[in-house]
């Protein structure tokens, strides 16, 4: 069934690279510190100093690369919940498929902030500065998610020009879409797309990278993430988020 050789971007499928400057992401101390306190107490001044110091180096340490390809999409819901994007069959699982099913096209995207922040964080840990290392890592994670937000909005804007709507974004690893499908997803990109490599377990390097799909079409809806339909009934993500709302934390909302 899986025919990953049939479609090759570069041979007709347009590849879009999106330029993202770290200064446009407007990261704030609040972004980095959310969930790092119980709301009644603020963090020690020392940590704010460290974060400011980290912020001063972002232009030099973050090399954001982002891009996407647009592929025709086809959802054949009877065939084992496998969705066809381009000529590739993804095993997205019930939940993700249901969110995307009205899409006629799919933006398949990848985004990374490069390896420098993770190397810096590792180095800081080796120097016995675990708190600094954590704050670098945390800043890097927030920036990765903000860069993807930017890319998502950019794609939305481009589609709006053609009177098309977009869905929320979904990544291998979310809900029950296996991470191993990342190999299929990357087969839609040109070689070394955004400088991201996959390892044998289908994980991306640089680590601060996100990949995924966004549905496109005249009838698609942007829906918040849902936990209440997942089959892993007692997962902590679910317990944390289903109680009050039907939305699951999105990306970096620690």
């Amino acid at each position: 069934m899986i025919n990953s050789a049939a479609i090759r971007v570069g041979n007709g499928t347009p590849v879009f690279n999106v330029k993202i400057d770290v200064n446009n992401l407007k990261i704030s101390i609040k972004d980095v510190c959310s969930r790092m306190s119980n709301g009644t107490q603020s963090l020690d001044a020392h940590f704010y100093e460290i974060i400011n110091e980290i912020f001063a180096h972002l232009s030099e340490k973050c090399r954001i690369r982002a891009g996407y390809v647009i592929c025709p999409a086809d959802f054949n819901l009877t065939s084992n919940r496998k969705s066809k994007v381009g000529n590739i069959h993804f095993n997205m699982g019930k939940i993700v498929t249901s969110q995307l099913k009205n899409a006629v096209q799919m933006a398949v995207f990848a985004c990374t902030i490069g390896p420098d922040m993770e190397n810096w964080s590792r180095h800081s840990m080796e120097q016995d500065n675990p708190a600094e290392s954590y704050l670098i890592d945390r800043t890097a994670s927030v920036l990765t998610e903000k860069a993807v937000d930017y890319l998502h909005e950019y794609i939305g804007g481009e589609m709006a020009k053609q009177n098309l709507l977009i869905t929320n974004r979904y990544s291998p690893g979310y809900c029950d879409w296996p991470v191993s499908d990342q190999h299929l997803l990357f087969s839609l990109f040109p070689h070394n797309f955004c400088g991201i490599r996959l390892n044998a377990s289908a994980l991306m390097h640089p680590i601060k990278s996100v990949s995924g799909v966004i549905g496109i079409g005249p009838d698609v809806e942007f829906k918040e993430y849902m936990c209440n339909r997942c089959r892993i009934k007692e997962c902590t993500y679910r317990r944390k988020h289903v109680k009050n709302t039907n939305t699951i934390i999105r990306g970096i909302a620690l």
């Binding site: 790092m36 306190s37 119980n38 963090l43 020690d44 940590f47 016995d128 500065n129 675990p130 708190a131 290392s133 954590y134 704050l135």
Partner: peptide
Amino acid sequence: RNEVFVPELLMAAKAMN
């Protein structure tokens, strides 16, 4: 008990080191 957070815990680890 959510009375301290990751950075504080890491500073404790550093003091321990």
